[in-house]
Design a protein around this nucleic acid. Structure first.
Length: 486
DNA sequence: ATGTCC
């Protein structure tokens, strides 16, 4: 059996692309990394392996804690981490969901081709940037009050439909139809609601972006047909989350859980993993508050979609309906959700925590929207500004390997601080424009340096592992044309 | 990720 030692951990090769840290000491289950040898080489000396090993100590965790091929260190629980925890006798951990609750990605189709857009990139990127709030503290598409935020939290995309920002068809093409049934705004603090009231319809900062892309390659014709994708087509990808509201919800509950369940958490090696025992009041409260923040993020991405449609209307002088700007799909990659999975041949209800991991359900699962149930759910993997992104479809391997999950993107290989030492904003921006005809506009130049293509792993490597294990299989590849960010 | 520190 092949073994590799990384940062003092022995990784045993279970088979191609599956590595295991054996259960020992306080670990309740083994830890698994789904990665190629070259992706393992890129883990470096950060805390990823400590964190995925720590996660195996969460009470009620089943089978193994997992790290996806794009995984890297986070707060407490790694980004790219998946933890499936018994929903009756286990626990739920806000740190294993992440601060940016329902950070996620959506893709909007158009019937435009690259030729329709070429030569007008500058005009389009400027119009998008002028109409879509980016960065921190610049307001949102709508400025509202706490009462409206409360409605958004409880109703998700139902609110957006009633207000004219979404169509019923948008809802049908969103994970959970854009509305979590267990959401309850009563469990969201006034602080969190206040932070959210002027952020509905705002992109935020960091790795969040809105990108106009060109479909550069199709891998599976029949699935691409079902998804309405073809070569040279223009599509729009939006990557953002629940802004300050989700952040505040996470913080509120990490604090409350640490206080109310100090004994339950006493043996956990990291305060950021603090977990609420299943069935406790605070577990139910967090689940309701998290669902509400999830709804907020869906409305957030929907308002950016609304605004994008308006911008395309004006720039191209045609209605968005005429340009076929329909939602292909919207995936959440920072969530926990009650799902039924087979464990040792027995169906069990689990809190599946996905932090920087995407649900990748195959054909047949009832959670997959009707339009895609024959082929599997769309999985959206954003890459870097220079290398492009992937649309995949959920595969059967996700159910046997990773509780219906795959990666969420390329994954960082260096810190933001290191990125700013290595790259200059205007060099990155000019190089992309002059050599790849990619037009970037950002609120803050530092963000461009922090998000330079070189700070990310190769998305092709991540997708290759996902495909090999049949977690999710590539359907189409896209390359950036215009990108706006915080 | 984040009113980039309550």
């Amino acid at each position: 059996m092949t073994t590799r030692e990384i940062n003092g951990y022995q990784l045993q090769r279970v088979r191609e692309h599956v590595w295991e840290i054996r259960q020992e000491g306080e670990m309740r289950v083994p830890a698994r990394l789904l990665a190629s040898e070259s992706l393992l080489d890129q883990i470096g000396d950060d805390n990823t392996l400590d964190q995925i090993t720590n996660a195996t100590q969460l009470p009620g965790i089943t089978t193994h804690a997992l790290c996806m091929p794009d995984g890297h260190q986070g707060y407490g629980f790694p980004v790219g981490g998946v933890g499936a925890i018994d929903a009756e006798n286990g626990c739920i951990s806000p740190g294993a969901v992440g601060f940016d609750i329902n950070c996620g990605v959506r893709l909007i189709r158009t019937t435009l081709t690259y030729d329709d857009l070429r030569g007008r990139e500058e005009e389009l990127v400027n119009a998008l940037f002028a109409n879509i709030p980016t960065g921190i503290g610049h307001g949102g598409v709508v400025e509202t009050d706490v009462e409206t935020v409360t409605e958004v939290l409880d109703r998700g995309l139902d609110w957006a439909v009633d207000e004219g920002y979404a169509t019923r068809d948008d809802m049908l093409h969103c994970e959970d139809e854009g509305r979590r049934p267990d959401a309850d705004s009563a469990f969201v603090s006034e602080d969190a609601k206040n932070r959210g009231k002027n952020q509905i319809g705002s992109l935020g900062s960091g790795n969040h972006f809105l990108e106009v892309q060109r479909v550069s390659e199709i891998f599976e014709d029949d699935v691409a047909d079902a998804y309405g994708l073809q070569s040279d087509q223009i599509v729009v990808m939006i990557h953002c989350g629940s802004r300050g509201l989700g952040h505040q919800v996470c913080k509120d509950y990490v604090n409350r859980i640490s206080e109310e369940h100090a004994e339950f958490n006493a043996d956990l090696p990291d305060d950021n993993l603090a977990a609420a025992p299943a069935g406790s009041q605070v577990a139910e409260a967090y689940y309701g508050a998290m669902g509400a923040a999830i709804n907020f993020a869906w409305v957030n991405r929907q308002l950016l979609t609304y605004q994008t449609r308006q911008v395309f209307d004006r720039v191209f002088g045609r209605s968005w309906e005429d340009m076929g700007m329909e939602l292909l799909y919207d995936v959440a990659h920072n969530i926990a959700k009650k799902e039924i999975h087979a464990v040792d041949g027995e169906d069990r209800e689990l809190y599946v925590h996905r932090k920087g991991a995407t649900r990748a359900f195959p054909a047949g699962r009832e959670e997959v929207p009707r339009a895609y149930r024959e082929v599997g759910q769309p999985v959206l993997l954003p890459g870097s500004m220079g290398t492009g992104s992937y649309v995949l479809r959920g595969g059967d391997g996700s159910l046997s390997e990773s509780f219906g999950s795959t990666a969420h993107g390329a994954g960082r290989i260096m810190s933001r601080t290191q990125a700013k030492r290595e790259y200059g904003a205007s060099d990155v921006q000019n190089d992309l424009r002059d050599h790849q005809q990619i037009y970037i506009k950002a609120e803050d130049g530092e963000t461009i340096a922090e998000e330079a293509p070189g700070v990310y792993k190769d998305i092709d490597d991540v997708v290759a592992v996902s495909k090999d294990l049949d977690l999710a299989d590539p359907v189409a590849r896209t390359v950036p044309v215009c990108n706006i960010k915080g």
